[in-house]
């Protein structure tokens, strides 16, 4: 049944993907050794002098490196929490809407930002968050502001967090909506017979029904604690908000490629890679342990 020619065919099929995987994922891993060199592009990897852990140690002594690490974790964690809460709340409320067409229209509206790039959305945000933009006009009605959304270090991270909520909550709600539809309708009927009101049903049936999905999403999020969203921040930040808005990825880009501190940039990147791998390991383990999830 399992012929050798079959196996050969499988190898042939997987070969192109494998070659590209090696060429663009594992070869860069080899290049990462420049984190342990004083890398000089003209000398290449072979010619550049080795410096051991100097770059790593220097990185830990840098105020900037510590700061971007904190910023990254803060922004990423807050994003997850607020996107999750908003998405769950949205899904639960949408589940109460009985008119199918209205339901569909609402979904159509809230999914759209997910498909637009951060370049487009940042362009839009820069307009509406400007001093004479729509957001300040709106706040002005309540006598607030004008607020300098993109230029105030204490406000900037929240602009990042809530604009991410805007882009993603609808889309993340999809999984919760799916989980809600999977709940056995008879449960609700029985509860109704027992005289449960709308909120009791939500509290005792809907929420427990989607709890496993919430746990799963939360577990998988652990692996993303160091991804605060390069595309988004790169297109919205500026020097005045570096203290709270600069994240590992933007920092590595600036020092590693633009300022030419290749080895330091690689060291910071490598540090992130290693921590991220550990976190993803933990997240898969947690997802398997508490949400019965396997990636394949």
């Amino acid at each position: 049944m399992f012929r050798d020619t079959d196996r050969l065919a499988y190898y042939v099929m997987i070969l192109p993907g494998l070659v590209l995987l090696i060429a663009f994922t594992f070869v860069p891993l080899v290049y990462s050794v420049i984190a342990f060199q004083k890398f000089n592009p003209a000398l290449g990897i072979q010619g550049s002098p080795w410096v051991g852990l100097d770059n790593i140690l220097y990185m830990f002594s840098l105020r900037d490196a510590r700061q971007v690490f904190t910023n990254t974790v803060f922004i990423a964690t807050m994003k997850m929490i607020f996107v999750l809460i908003t998405a769950v709340a949205f899904a639960l409320l949408l589940n109460e809407v009985r008119f199918l067409r209205i339901r569909r229209s609402i979904q159509t509206m809230v999914y759209l930002p997910h498909f637009l790039s951060w370049v487009i959305l940042a362009g839009i945000l820069r307009t509406i968050l400007a001093r004479d933009g729509m957001m300040n006009d709106f706040l002005g009605i309540f006598g607030i502001g004008p607020v300098y959304f993109l230029g105030q270090p204490n406000i900037f991270p929240w602009v990042i967090i809530f604009s991410d909520v805007w882009k993603e909550f609808g889309f993340e709600a999809i999984v919760y909506l799916a989980a809600l539809t999977a709940i056995d309708p008879t449960l609700y009927e029985v509860a109704e017979l027992d005289g449960a009101n709308r909120f009791q049903k939500m509290r005792f049936i809907s929420i427990p029904g989607i709890a496993p999905v919430i746990v799963l999403v939360a577990c998988l999020s652990i692996g993303n604690v160091l991804n605060a969203g390069f595309d988004q921040i790169f297109n919205l930040y500026s020097p005045i908000v570096y203290s709270t808005g600069d994240i590992i990825d933007t920092y590595v880009y600036r020092i590693g490629l633009i300022q030419g501190q290749y080895s330091l940039g690689t060291a910071v990147g490598l540090f992130k890679t290693v921590v991220a791998l550990l976190l993803i390991g933990v997240s898969y383990w947690a997802a398997g342990r508490w949400a019965n999830y396997r990636i394949f």
């Binding site: 105030q152 020097p239 005045i240 203290s243």
Partner: peptide, 17 residues
């Protein structure tokens, strides 16, 4: 790093942050 510190500080002082 010194320069980044300076840029940031000047802008933040002028804008009152």
């Amino acid at each position: 790093a010194l320069q980044k510190l300076e840029e940031e500080t000047f802008l933040q002082i002028i804008t009152g942050a």
